[in-house]
Amino acid sequence: MSDRQAVEQTVHLYVEGMAFANEAALKKAFHPKSSIIGHYENAVEWLTRDEFIAAILQEEPAPPGTQPYMDIQSVDVEGDAASVKVTDDFAGMRFTDYLSLLKIDGRWTIVSKLFHLHR
């Protein structure tokens, strides 16, 4: 598997983990020290991975068997660093996420998520 494919696989893991409230998938996709940052409900939200996962688990997950909306618009990989722009839906809202990933011990993991909530 190429690095680009492995990065995209991590993004799929994240989006599906979010859509189906899969805590294990989200913990695998995100580094334990990652940050999730953006404007939400008229305030800057700056969450740790575990705070983000807790917020996801409070929402109603997508029904089993549904295909979550995900549009990967760009992937840039340079050595052990990668950047991805992806648009996805969660809990009836559409987001554009800018994900920074780092290859640690041979595995790609999200170290930062900067998001925009569409209105």
Score class of each variant (00 low, 15 high):
Gly65Gln: 08
Met93Arg: 15
Pro64Gly: 03
Val11Gly: 05
Asn42Cys: 12
Phe20Thr: 06
Gly92Gln: 08
Gly79Ala: 03
Val44His: 01
Asn42Trp: 09
Val111Ser: 04
Arg94Ile: 00
Gln73Met: 02
Ser100Val: 13
His116Tyr: 01
Arg94Phe: 01
Tyr14Arg: 05
Lys113Met: 02
Asp71Cys: 01
Thr66Ile: 09
Val86Ile: 09
Ala62Val: 01
Tyr98Glu: 04
Asn22Lys: 14
Ala24Glu: 07
Glu8Trp: 04
Phe52Tyr: 14
Phe30Gly: 07
Ala6Met: 05
Ala6Phe: 01
Pro32Ile: 14
Thr10Met: 06
Asn42Glu: 15
Pro63Trp: 09
Ala19Gly: 14
Arg49Gly: 02
Ala19Arg: 05
Thr109Glu: 03
Lys27Val: 07
Ala29Glu: 15
Phe95Glu: 03
Val75Cys: 04
Gln73Cys: 01
Thr10His: 03
His39Gly: 04
Thr109Ile: 14
Trp46Lys: 15
His116Arg: 05
Ser112Tyr: 01
Gln73Asp: 00
Leu47Met: 04
Asp88Pro: 00
Ile104Gln: 04
Val111Gln: 02
Glu23Val: 06
Pro61Thr: 09
Ala91Cys: 14
Ala29Pro: 11
Ala19Leu: 10
Val7Arg: 11
Leu13Met: 11
Ala81His: 01
Glu23Ile: 09
Lys28Ser: 14
Glu23Ser: 11
Gly106Arg: 14
Tyr14Val: 01
Thr10Ile: 03
Gln67Cys: 02
Glu41Leu: 15
Leu101Glu: 09
Ile37Arg: 12
Gln73Arg: 02
Phe95Met: 00
Val75Glu: 06
Ala43Pro: 06
Lys27Phe: 12
Pro64Phe: 08
Trp108Met: 14
Val111Gly: 04
Ala55Arg: 09
Met18Tyr: 11
Ala62Cys: 03
Thr109Tyr: 10
Ser35Ala: 15
Ile53Ala: 15
Ser34Pro: 04
Ala6Ile: 01
Leu13Asp: 03
Ala43Val: 11
Arg107Ala: 14
Ala21Asn: 08
Gln5Val: 05
Glu41Trp: 10
Gln73Tyr: 00
Lys113Asp: 00
Phe115Thr: 07
Phe115Cys: 06
Thr87Ser: 09
Arg4Met: 10
